[in-house]
């Protein structure tokens, strides 16, 4: 194969310049066709099943739209104003906020602690196995393990209350209690997702420059001081990534709430709407009560909220995180 770029730079006297130009254009076109040809299959799937519905959602959020009728009417911001007057909408936002504010820090801190511990254990026998064990819950299907956790949270025969009993603590109603249903979901979520963030932190810790840590040791820093002043700032970027990822994921949590609090038997989001988060409310509004337009408006609100939170996090991180 000829390399036209070299030929042009070389200024070969026997080949006319327009030929070189044409061969270059042809190569560029070939690259373009081959490149896009390669990504076309996944691009089509992505456009049809991802961006398509998203754009359609944007459309119906401003219309009165019904899945069973052929026409729709433009209603402007009507759907949003309806939303703002629904107490359950505000309740769901509050539930989500409660859920996110507890789950994200707990998951992040637990993952960091586990990663630090596992890093120490890596050289020991069984270090690899414990790492796999921590990651294992994350690869299990949410619905299947949620059903197991329904049993664990069973007020009469469940493991959770057995543990409380063994610790001489009062028994709880868990999923049937208005106060403890959402925390029960949180416990499940932490259990399920901490493995992923642990792996991310482990990856971040493994990139720490070894000699910098050794220099800190020689400087007399150990334990908390070394962690606070050296390790934590250096894994800032990965911490930021973990916090953003965890926030986005938990703000959209659906499967485990649906399965743990109702599942196939109906009544998800209870008791008394105490576990009705925004995703659950969107699902119920759209697919249970057929208010697709209202559900779309809610999705749009959720999207804007997630975007806002992420931007705030980025704003904070840009001032606090050190990038090597």
């Amino acid at each position: 194969m000829t390399n036209p770029e070299n030929a042009v730079e070389g200024g070969h006297p026997d080949i006319p310049s327009w030929m070189l130009w044409w061969s270059r254009v042809r190569t560029q076109w070939q690259d373009l066709v081959v490149g896009y040809g390669m990504i076309l299959p996944s691009l089509v799937v992505f456009l049809v099943f991802y961006y398509g519905p998203a754009l359609f959602l944007l459309y119906i959020a401003f219309f009165h739209w019904n899945i069973f009728s052929n026409y729709s009417t433009f209603v402007g911001l009507h759907n949003f104003s309806v939303l703002l007057h629904q107490p359950i909408f505000w309740q769901s936002l509050l539930n989500t906020a409660y859920y996110v504010v507890l789950v994200v820090p707990v998951t992040t801190l637990l993952a960091l602690a586990l990663a630090l511990g596992l890093r120490q254990a890596w050289s020991l026998k069984g270090g690899g196995v414990s790492q796999a064990l921590v990651f294992l819950p994350h690869v299990t299907p949410v619905v299947a393990t949620s059903i197991i956790w329904v049993w664990i949270f069973d007020p009469n025969f469940g493991l959770a209350n057995a543990v409380l009993h063994a610790l001489h603590l009062p028994q709880l109603g868990w999923l049937s209690s208005v106060h403890w249903a959402l925390p029960a979901v949180m416990i499940y979520t932490v259990w399920h997702s901490v493995g992923l963030y642990t792996i991310l932190f482990l990856a971040g810790l493994s990139t720490l420059p070894k000699q910098v840590l050794e220099a800190a040791q020689l400087d007399g820093a150990r334990g908390w001081l070394a962690f606070r002043r050296i390790i934590l700032p250096l894994i800032g970027p990965i911490t930021f990534f973990v916090v953003v990822l965890a926030t986005i994921t938990t703000m959209q949590t659906f499967s485990q709430i649906y399965t743990l609090t109702g599942g196939p038997h109906g009544g998800a989001g209870g008791p008394a709407f105490s576990t009705t988060t925004d995703s659950l409310l969107i699902y119920q509004t759209a697919f249970l009560y057929d208010h697709f337009s209202l559900g779309s408006a809610m999705s749009l609100v959720l999207f804007i909220l997630i975007l806002a939170v992420t931007l705030i996090q980025k704003f904070v991180a840009d001032r606090m995180v050190f990038y090597r």
Binding site: L218, D219, G220, I230
Partner: peptide
């Protein structure tokens, strides 16, 4: 940390 040694590393290992 107890040895009070000053060490200069090949890649300097400054706290970035």
């Amino acid at each position: 940390p107890e040895r009070n040694i000053g060490m200069v590393f090949q890649n300097y290992a400054l706290y970035p």
